[in-house]
Design a binder for these strands. Sequence first.
DNA 1: CAGTGGTCTAGACCACGTG
DNA 2: ACGTGGTCTAGACCACTGC
Lengths: 251, 251
Amino acid sequence: MTDRPHDPGRAASSAAFSPLYQQIKSLILRGLDHGEWKPGEAIPSEFELAARYQVSQGTVRKAIDELAADNLLIRRQGKGTFVATHNEAKVRFRFLRLSADDGLPAASRSQILDCRRLKAPPEVAGALDMRTGDMVVNMRRVLSFDAIPTILDDIWLPGHIFKGLTMESLERYRGPVYALFETEFGVSMVRADEKIRAVIATSAQAELLSVPVSSPLLQVERISYTYGDRPMELRRGLYVTERYHYRNSLN
Amino acid sequence: MTDRPHDPGRAASSAAFSPLYQQIKSLILRGLDHGEWKPGEAIPSEFELAARYQVSQGTVRKAIDELAADNLLIRRQGKGTFVATHNEAKVRFRFLRLSADDGLPAASRSQILDCRRLKAPPEVAGALDMRTGDMVVNMRRVLSFDAIPTILDDIWLPGHIFKGLTMESLERYRGPVYALFETEFGVSMVRADEKIRAVIATSAQAELLSVPVSSPLLQVERISYTYGDRPMELRRGLYVTERYHYRNSLN
DNA sequence: CAGTGGTCTAGACCACGTG
DNA sequence: ACGTGGTCTAGACCACTGC
């Protein structure tokens, strides 16, 4: 078996030129997608990969550089290169951009409101690349920081992938749900797009978040993607931004 | 004159090891800060810089790679490497993350409300690394998209740097204010941090934005930095998010 | 001490843009 | 045809980690 990538643009000029390291990147990406290396595990060393793919170590290096820049891999000098995971304290806030105004860390607690299986409404189906009526899991929860309700989440997941997800398993699990998705369902969230607006709390929302009706809330609509840009989660969060703010950096 | 960076860690082991390419990066950064190359202009070729700094072209390359990743430089194959600017159509939305829900581009128009020089309130001074009472410029404006008022901006700038900034010069200028800052005052904004909340429109704000009192607004507080992480602008924007949303990508 | 990623170099060749 | 950045290689050496 030869894994060697073919060689466009080296012999004859080609219409679609793709650098070798991009092809290597795709191969590694495929390995990640197929679960060849699990989140938190080390991938083979650069020299091993170079031998496997029949390219120089420098070329593998450049491929890994890009995957590390995308946060799919984590390099650790002297130790190896590891598959990114949501299971580490360091990256707990990779997808949660809410910070306390005073900067102090807070104890967080999650209260699951419900977790049901139902047919996807059109809007949800569209976001998840499914058909209207396909099975989806819908869960809602309230996240509290220092015992103050702060986030009301409404989460939609493809039913055929998140099969055993129940209220009990959610309540049992300690840690971010993205870590649970990884370990229980083999789904790694790799990237997400968000649309943010200011809205007014309905009475139901206000009650769940212990704020006055018509309080302003930050609405964060998120679509999370796994490898290959496949949407795996639609989430609508409502954030109380009295003592917390959504932080962002522009480059 | 020798620009050659010194060489820690090559001869004897050193406490603070800094790779050669990082030192080159700093040297290029200093050149940018000192205005050796202006926004939009090309910097010398990799080989020229390699000769100037007495290192290999590959090392210069790696330094430029990082500066390009930070959006300080823009590489253009076959043409050269250019200093990033806010003056190009392509990057007009680098710092403006508001998008129309329907995705259609809109004609934008800016109405300047006022532009005054006054003594910095404590909060403003703190954000701009100045002393309370130092001179600052304060301008306010309304941005409209397709003739619909959408953003109310309140902008604070260090007075000793933005000397000739007046309401007339602002009104005369076509294009983003960041482009004006570059061309008129030599200040390049390179990075920004934002804190985002949901708030309720005061009657004054509501009137300026033509929305009902107590409408929900997205409050975006931004500190913009020039080279060397020096804060140069404090801006509080209020966004109407009825037909527009703030978009963000998480990695 | 061995193995990993990180740096640096030198040289060959390719793709792109411009004359 | 030339100069720019982009790719690929091979080899030497350094820094960090863990046995």
